[in-house]
């Protein structure tokens, strides 16, 4: 992209990281501000190095949860990068994204959304429509829209992101399961309960296949066990397999653990909603044991 952070700024950045990681913001902030002043004197305000320095200082504020201050600095950095690097530069897309994140952290989803959309347009133009970074941007956009209740758009963005992740990174990539979970939460809001249920089952089945290689009578994903227990409880033929074995199933299944745990709980909640209490308890027990 034609710009490289000069060595002295890298050193300064690393030093600032050290101070910030120790919580010594009273050192980090003045250090950044002095460097900014010096840079502006030597290079002028509209220089990519100044944008870099503004970015570094913005991170220091961000890490203190001072999102408004961080956004102010990033806005300035954005303006400089647009002027000096070009409006479609990847650094401009990244800055737009990060501004959107800062607005999102403050609950300003309506303001964040157009920034995120602009970042998406640039990424699609530069990287192509099916790049994993485009999927990341779609995911951020979906999250912002979901917090505004725009579920039709959310569904579209998550579906696109999912297609990209599956095609480019494969079905076992952690982003696939995370996006399916998010899409399922959107489906729930839309009343598409069956679609949500299917996604949760897909996640658990994929985790199962990754660990055990197949689905057959001897190796069933946990949700199949849960539904069988539900059926048996209705016919009063109790399955003697103790719950702890399902915790064992889960422990053996280390893929995407937090996501799989969330999925177990979400599908359990869905079962509960459907009155399938035995099935719900099976998954809830499994989720609890694996936490």
């Amino acid at each position: 992209g034609g710009y490289e952070i000069p060595a002295r700024l890298r050193t300064l950045h690393n030093l600032v990281i050290q101070y910030a990681s120790q919580g010594r913001y009273e050192v980090a902030v003045p250090l950044c501000k002095q460097a900014l002043e010096d840079l502006e004197k030597t290079s002028g305000h509209d220089h990519p190095d100044v944008a870099t320095m503004l970015n570094i200082l913005a991170l220091v504020y961000r890490d203190q949860n001072k999102y408004k201050e961080a956004a102010h600095l990033l806005n300035d950095a954005l303006s400089i990068r647009e002027k000096t690097l070009g409006k479609d530069h990847p650094a401009v897309a990244a800055t737009l994204n990060n501004l959107a994140v800062l607005y999102g952290k403050r609950g300003k989803y309506r303001e964040a959304e157009p920034l995120c959309k602009r970042a998406l347009e640039i990424r699609e133009k530069v990287l192509g429509k099916d790049h994993p970074d485009v999927a990341k941007q779609l995911n951020n956009l979906a999250l912002l829209c979901q917090n505004q209740g725009k579920y039709d758009e959310v569904e579209y963005y998550y579906c696109r992101a999912l297609e990209i992740y599956q095609a480019r990174l494969g079905p076992d990539d952690p982003n696939v399961a995370k996006t399916k979970n998010n899409l399922a939460s959107c489906y729930l809001k839309q009343g598409k309960f069956k679609a949500a249920e299917q996604l949760y089952k897909d996640i658990l089945t994929q985790a199962h296949v990754k660990e055990f290689g197949s689905v057959d009578d001897d190796h069933k994903p946990i949700w199949m066990h849960a539904e069988e227990r539900e059926e048996m409880s209705k016919t009063s033929h109790n399955d003697s397999t103790p719950y702890s074995e399902y915790g064992g199933w889960y422990k053996a299944c280390r893929v995407n653990s937090p996501t799989v745990n969330t999925t177990l709980r979400n599908l359990g909640a869905l079962y509960r909603r459907q009155g399938k209490l035995e099935a719900a308890e099976t998954l809830e027990e499994c989720a609890m044991r694996s936490r």
Partner: peptide
């Protein structure tokens, strides 16, 4: 509200402007 907060936490930062 909790779900909104969870989604806020999922927003992904882009570090590429400061990677080298």
């Amino acid at each position: 509200d909790q779900q909104n907060v969870n989604r806020q936490q999922q927003l992904e930062w882009d570090d590429s402007t400061l990677t080298y």
